[in-house]
Design a protein around this nucleic acid. Structure first.
Length: 271
DNA sequence: AAAAAGGCCAACCGCCCAAAA
DNA sequence: TTTTTGGGCGGTTGGCCTTTT
C-alpha cells in the first residue's frame, strides 16, 4: 500500500527535456507563477509529470541560477557546510546563491569527494583518515577552522533555528553582490565564528528574495520594470538554451542580450 | 582510428513530512 | 484524530562525453 503515484504514468514523457518543453514551462510559470505542480503539466500543455516539471524548473530553468563549475570559495563553503550538515544538500544549497542541491550533490560526488580522499580526509566525518584509527584528538583537523567533527551541533542548531534571519539576510546579499569575489565572502564568513556557528540555523530562502514567482501576469510581458532582476538574469536563457528571449515575446534587446548572443557565438566557435 | 573505460550530470525514483480535508 | 495530498529531499541511474589504451 504505497501512496498513489504523483501523476498518471501512462502517456507521461520521460528523459531529457526539449527546448520546446522548456519554453512551455517557462512561459507558464512566468505567466502564472509557481503553483500546484501537479496541475502544471496539464495547464502548460506538457506531457510530463508535475514533479518532473518542478525539478526541471528548480534545477535548470530558474532565472537566478548560476551556471558553470563551483568556484574554489564555493567549494570550500560546501565542504565546511557538509562537515556540519552532512548530506543535507538542500540546506547547503540554500547557502550558495544560484546553486541547486542537485548541482552541489553532483559536484560533491564527482569532485570534492575525490579531492578530500586524496588529501586523506574522510568524506563523512571530515577527519584525517589515518588519525581516525589512532586518536580521538580532533585539534589538528585540516578543516578544523570551520568544522565540528561528528555534526554534534545539529541538535543545538535545531534548538536555535531561525533566530538570526537578519544576519543571514545581510550575509546572503553580500554573497549575491560579491560578483566574483567569493573568497572575500568566504573569508568574512569563516573569520566570524559566531556568524559561522549560526549562519545555517535559519531557513531563510535566498532564492525567493531574488526571484519572486508569485503570479505577475501584468509584469511578464509589458511591465518588466517591476521585475528588476529579470533583465539581469535573462542571459541564462541564451546562455544555455537552444532558443532565445525573443521566443518568449520579450524585448530584452539590450547589452545583456547582445552579450549572451556573443557568448553563444563564442561557444559555437569553440566547438 | 576504433574500442573500452571512466567521468560527469540531468533526470528519475521512492520516501518523508507538513498541511489540508 | 486520522487520512489524503502535494511538495521537497536525498539516493541512484542512464546516457552522453572525454580520455585512455
Amino acid at each position: 500500500m504505497g501512496r498513489q503515484p504523483c501523476c498518471d504514468k501512462l502517456g507521461v514523457k520521460k528523459g531529457p527535456w526539449t527546448a520546446e518543453e522548456d519554453k512551455k514551462l517557462i512561459n507558464f510559470i512566468l505567466t502564472n507563477g509557481q503553483c500546484c505542480w501537479r496541475a502544471v503539466p496539464k495547464l502548460a500543455g506538457l506531457r510530463r509529470c508535475g514533479k518532473s516539471c518542478r525539478l526541471r524548473w528548480t534545477n535548470y530553468l530558474r532565472p537566478d541560477l548560476k551556471r558553470g563549475l563551483l568556484t574554489q570559495a564555493e567549494e570550500q563553503l560546501v565542504i565546511d557546510l557538509h562537515a556540519r550538515l552532512g548530506n543535507r544538500w538542500s540546506k547547503i544549497a540554500a547557502r550558495l546563491p544560484g546553486r541547486t542541491d542537485n548541482e552541489i550533490k553532483n559536484h560533491w560526488n564527482t569532485h570534492i569527494k575525490k579531492k578530500l580522499l586524496k588529501m586523506g580526509i574522510d568524506v563523512v566525518t571530515h577527519e584525517p583518515l589515518n588519525k581516525q584509527a589512532t586518536s580521538q584528538d580532533s585539534s589538528s583537523s585540516p578543516l578544523e577552522h570551520v568544522t565540528q567533527p561528528g555534526n554534534n551541533n545539529l541538535d543545538q542548531m535545531k534548538e536555535t533555528d531561525g533566530i538570526l534571519n537578519s544576519e543571514e539576510n545581510s550575509s546572503s546579499s553580500q554573497a549575491e553582490n560579491s560578483s566574483g569575489d567569493d573568497s572575500l565572502l568566504l573569508d568574512s564568513i569563516c573569520s566570524d565564528d559566531f556568524l559561522l556557528d549560526t549562519l545555517w540555523l535559519d531557513e531563510t530562502p535566498l532564492v525567493e528574495a531574488l526571484w519572486d514567482t508569485t503570479p505577475k501576469v501584468e509584469n511578464t510581458n509589458s511591465n518588466m520594470g517591476l521585475m528588476p532582476s529579470w533583465e539581469d538574469d535573462c542571459s541564462w536563457l541564451l546562455d544555455c538554451q537552444d532558443f532565445g528571449i525573443h521566443d518568449f515575446g520579450f524585448s530584452c534587446s539590450n547589452d545583456i542580450e547582445s552579450n549572451a548572443l556573443q557568448t553563444i557565438g563564442m561557444k559555437e566557435e569553440g566547438h
